[in-house]
Design a protein around this nucleic acid. Sequence first.
RNA 1: GCCUGUUUAGCUCAGUUGGUUAGAGCAACGGACUGUUAAUCCGUGUGUCGCCGGUUCGAAUCCAGCAACGGGCGCCA
Length: 451
Amino acid sequence: MAGVDRRTPIRDLLTNANAGADVTVTGWVKTSRFSKNVSFVHVFDGSTPKTVQIVLNAELAEQFKAELGIGAAVRIHGAWVQSPGGEQSLEVSATDVTIVGQTHPSDYPLQKKRTSLENLRTMAHLRPRTNTMQSVFRVRNALANNIHRFFQDRGFMWVHTPILSTADAEGAGEMFRVLHGDDPEFFGGPAYLTVSGQLNVETFGQAFTDVYTFGPTFRAEKSNTPRHACEFWMIEPEIYFANLDDVIALATDFVKTVTKATIEQCPDDFAFFNKFIEKGLLDSLNAAISADFARVTHDEAQDILVATGKKWEFKVGRGESLQAEHERYLAEEHFKGPVFVTDYPMEQKAFYMRLNDDQRTVAATDLLVPRIGEMIGGSQREERLDVLDDLFRRHNVPGEDYEWYRDLRRFGSAPHGGFGLGFERMLMWITGMKNIRDVIPYPRTPGQAGY
RNA sequence: GCCUGUUUAGCUCAGUUGGUUAGAGCAACGGACUGUUAAUCCGUGUGUCGCCGGUUCGAAUCCAGCAACGGGCGCCA
């Protein structure tokens, strides 16, 4: 039973249309129905949203009835046969049943019926067994894989930027302090968990041309929203000999290619999301990735908002900042799809973004998408040392803390840019899930890191 | 950080102007029945009404405090 042939994944089994084979299935009971002559047990193993139907004769049913309730771990040996039932063409006619791990339905915290996502968060150890979480995490895996494949196919190098950092002012948010119990000076000073790999990856971009990061990142902000977590994964490509147009072209290619590949790989999971999580999800995703992404400047976006004549909670107009309500209006109602907003006022963006010729705006862009808001934030970086120093001053950032970053502008500087994409936000966009906590295996939010 | 809501059975929730033994659906349990598909039918209520005080003859219900968990906004991805 050990080794490579220890089981047939249910996903593979269900694609085998040839009846007659001897098969072994391992997994957990999803539901079971017993009667005098014939009984049915549905088993899942995580390889597919579908279950395989196991048929038991009266003798086996009598023997195992008490132990085949929801949640039990089982190994079933039997024949792969035609099914008279209406909802599957083949099924396993069991000859041997082994109860590998017992459970009792009356104690089991999950039930055959619907359970709220909120309640599931209180049992992080069991929620992966539910239909929704099964689909979410299969798609999370496929999305991650497709992201790597997108970059690898285009010759990008994956750079493992550090998790620990002593830089405390990267302009991307509050940081978690890392303390060594006995030695506060372990790193020669305060150390923190990274809020972004972008500055670090630039070093490698200036040596390998096209690079990206893909890893965890940490924000110590007490954000209490369905879109924020203290620990999340981020993708940050950085390309050299490139300008903002190249960054936008890359981001467009990225979103379209990766989304399309993931939908194609997980048809059953997307059918589930489309039916139970977000009605019309597939239509809206397919429409988004087959149309051109809109593109407007920050000034134009503000003009659009002013022209609506709507009463906004926050002020609109050139020079004002785009709030969530504005971003949502632009993506959902005005452009009805993803839209790049470019050329933000300098003071609204990070110090490293490239100053435009108007001396007022920077070559930055955010990609706004329906339901999510900001999914990507990117820019061309300031490659001119004198201008960078000026930006340090204007942003009140101590340039002396970034000598190594300034060095990059001294030794073979080249125009470059990139973007940061919140992995979970993209996952929410393609699955229709409404809360970031429900697309992370173990969500970390303020007050919540138990397990 | 600001604003706001929820907390009653295993789950999802109802519970009137404060009133006697606290309810429904589903789950679970017992039984019947069926090539069934979250099967169906019959039967059974399993509860510190989040916690702690207060008001009252009487509190799930009113008041104060606390806690947990959500939602909106900000910060951002």
